[in-house]
Design a protein around this nucleic acid. Structure first.
Lengths: 198, 198, 198, 198
DNA sequence: TATGAATGAGGGTTCATTCAT
DNA sequence: AATGAATGAACCCTCATTCAT
């Protein structure tokens, strides 16, 4: 039935809001119940427990991201196009689902404490996928070859993440597509051409 | 007495190790007591409670960082020198006190949940101090002027943080000054000149 | 309708199996629902609740036993015949419905915790009925008179129960009528003639 | 310190009383806390949890019983003496610690639900030890040889257990050593010489 | 009659903090 | 200064029962 999916979604989104507000470790199941308007015990019909509910958040984030990366890498986009799509993915997500991005920044992307082997692998895989873009850039002569591709990845993702982090930290909303475009352009431009004056 | 300082230090360092291992929310006072070899209740003679102990960690990190920034900004260093000093500060700290850097990365730099007004201000201040370096770079014609100084800051700190994060995540140690120098050079070079091939 | 009776029976038997497996306190209504193939809520159409369902188990056991005792006491059987019939009743029941006997042994015959006044009375009544057999045995000169009839009852029922208990505990099945006969004979013989060598 | 042992004992005895009253599955830690006058959380300093606390009860019972059996089997007692000692052990225990015996009867000796492999082994071992007494009785010509020793064990332990059970069920106290002696004598006498009139 | 989603009180356990010694 | 026993609120999860369809 459709009701089931709806309820699950309600719980999931309530969890996002609560975690954003209080952090995952202070998020109580009671909070999520109250926030979602769904009775306490019912949550356990939809999710095995707190752990599984929170795991679902990780899963969704990474599935979304890997879905993008798959598209980016399959089709014949140029390297700057590809990087641009990654940037837009983060910014779009932040517009559409700021709580999820917030949680990615604050709970997923860092936090060695919750870092299971599996979660670390998500990261490595994402880094590897980005590496392969950098590799192609170096191979086609578009990116400089005097650095390890992994270092280029660090710089690129570091910049992107920090931009988004800053927005997340001050709860800043992206106002309009213009601003989004400007931010995206800045990240890509400085990554590619550096900060030094010509 | 000197004993007092020693005990405080023992507790503090035990706290760092425990938090690194289990994350701040799973770090129990009992763990810290056992790790430090200092009896349970005695911790409360030295620190008001868990909160204060953890606050101390934040305080030390930021004090160290602001101490550096003060030196960097007072003396007449060039802009690339200054940026280099910031980079070295992170890498040095990571060599000397990897737990503290780990915690900065995983618990301090992110985590909106623990984000008090005060903690947010630490960040803003640090960003502002970095901004002022970028500003001088732009003023003296060393850095390009077609971006907000804040954007340059994002790129620079993002790159730096991501390099360190990656090392933290995989618990990688910096082997020798050579490696440190190479990493530092990479960060600065890509930041300044970008990733595009010439 | 007949359907009603069938469903009731299905629930009842499922309850027996589940209780045997997990014990009454760990037997969940959900287990019984799943085991019986009857939907969750429907159980409550047939039984007021868990308590009533479990009460039914007690009731059936005791009704069966009292039905036997009635027959045993009404007709003109000899004392050893009567005792033999009781023994056979337990052994037959165990062959036919081992779950019910298991539950009698593990949940009914002991367990002061669930011991309502009513349940205690079932016991007393059964003891009394057995007493009356012993009494007749003493009156007719078949059983020794130097012990209270109640003591004879204890020995007899204790032996019987322990034989069955042992089979229940190790989930041992009675293989064929031969074995049943041998066991029955042993119980009665030792009860009557004792263990001492002549 | 001695305090520790005292508290443990207080908790243990409170647990016995509560379990006797409500049965182990309805015995709440809060009950035990209240009954013992020891604060809720402190129980967890002394026992890992409910499970361990209840395990301790089993352990004590069986250790006591095996302690007895060891003494009984080592020294050169006659077979009836040995059986008598077992009988007295149960009756003595019931006088001294009726709750423990109650729990043995209602929660330990039956209840396949809680029956772990380990617990089943306790039983088997006890049966085996009793068997060896019967075996010696048969070997020395004191007990009849036309029954398996295991059957003699069943009869003997069944009688004993049922006597004690009956006392437990009606919460009957043993009044004075006279009564105890009479009961013990009856059990042994009927076991040895049977119920048939001569 | 039939279904299984919905409810929420109940209970075990943890752990920061306090306190007696 | 030092110890670790004592306290109890907090929180996750279970499951008997009810309810809407």
């Amino acid at each position: 039935m459709c009701k089931k999916k709806e309820k699950e979604e309600a719980i999931f989104n309530a969890a996002l809001r609560v975690i954003k507000e209080k952090g995952s470790h202070k998020a109580r199941m009671a909070d999520i119940s109250k926030e979602s308007g769904i009775s306490y015990g019912l949550i356990y019909h939809y999710f095995r427990g707190k752990e599984e509910l929170f795991e679902e958040i990780h899963k969704r984030w990474w599935e979304g991201l890997f879905g993008l990366m798959k598209g980016v890498n399959q089709t014949g986009f140029s390297v700057p196009d590809r990087l641009n799509q990654i940037i837009y993915y983060f910014l779009d997500q932040y517009q559409m689902n700021p709580e999820l991005v917030n949680i990615f920044i604050t709970e997923i992307s860092r936090s060695t404490s919750n870092l299971t082997k599996e979660r670390l692998n998500y990261f490595k895989r994402f880094m590897d996928l980005t590496d392969s873009i950098m590799e192609e850039g170096q191979r086609t002569g578009f990116l400089r070859k005097d650095f390890k591709k992994r270092y280029l990845t660090y710089i690129f993702l570091g910049a992107l993440e920090t931009f988004v982090s800053a927005m997340v930290l001050v709860d800043q909303r992206i106002k309009g597509d213009d601003q989004k475009q400007r931010i995206a352009k800045s990240i890509l431009e400085i990554f590619l051409n550096g900060a030094r004056a010509r």
